[in-house]
């Protein structure tokens, strides 16, 4: 399945370190060699807390292999920025989709599924299912 086009994952957080660390965590837990493409888009372009359309668009382009891009976001302006980009703009590649999922668990589930060759719908379902892992 690894020759198939893989779904790309973009992690959008208010914080650059959070987005990068979660990408690193997901790569580590997906393990077993090469993973599907994943990119972090955290913080503002200037490196502060917030969200940047430029960073999000660049990350989406970087992971787009033609099989769709799943965007996983943390909260507030990360959600609204991606929604407004999808609603109006042309900055995101064809097949980009906002996935309703918890940030950390959803990122891991999405990357594992995308690396196994899952299509965009399957990746989205796996990430959303992460809401159901009860911890207590």
């Amino acid at each position: 399945m690894s020759e198939e086009k893989q779904v790309g994952i973009v992690l959008v957080s208010h914080s650059r370190p959070v987005a990068e660390a979660v990408a690193e965590l997901a790569r580590g837990l997906a393990a077993g060699g090469a993973t599907a493409p994943v990119a972090a888009a955290g913080g503002t372009s200037a490196g502060g807390l917030g969200t940047s359309t430029e960073l999000i668009a660049a990350a989406a382009r970087a992971v787009d292999r033609g099989a769709g891009v799943a965007l996983i976001v943390d909260l507030g302006s990360a959600v609204l920025t991606v929604k407004s980009m999808l609603a109006e703009g042309d900055e995101l590649p064809e097949g980009a989709r906002l996935v309703d999922a918890p940030f950390v668990e959803g990122a891991v589930a999405a990357l594992v599924t995308a690396s196994a060759g899952g299509d965009l719908g399957t990746v989205e379902a796996a990430a959303t299912d992460a809401y159901d892992y009860r911890k207590a």
Binding site: G50, T51, T53, E54, T81, S84, E88, G89
Partner: peptide, 14 residues
């Protein structure tokens, strides 16, 4: 949308 960085960017931008 591209310069504000907070939620008011996408809201006012939209």
């Amino acid at each position: 949308i591209s310069t504000v960085g907070g939620a008011s960017g996408p809201l006012y931008g939209t």
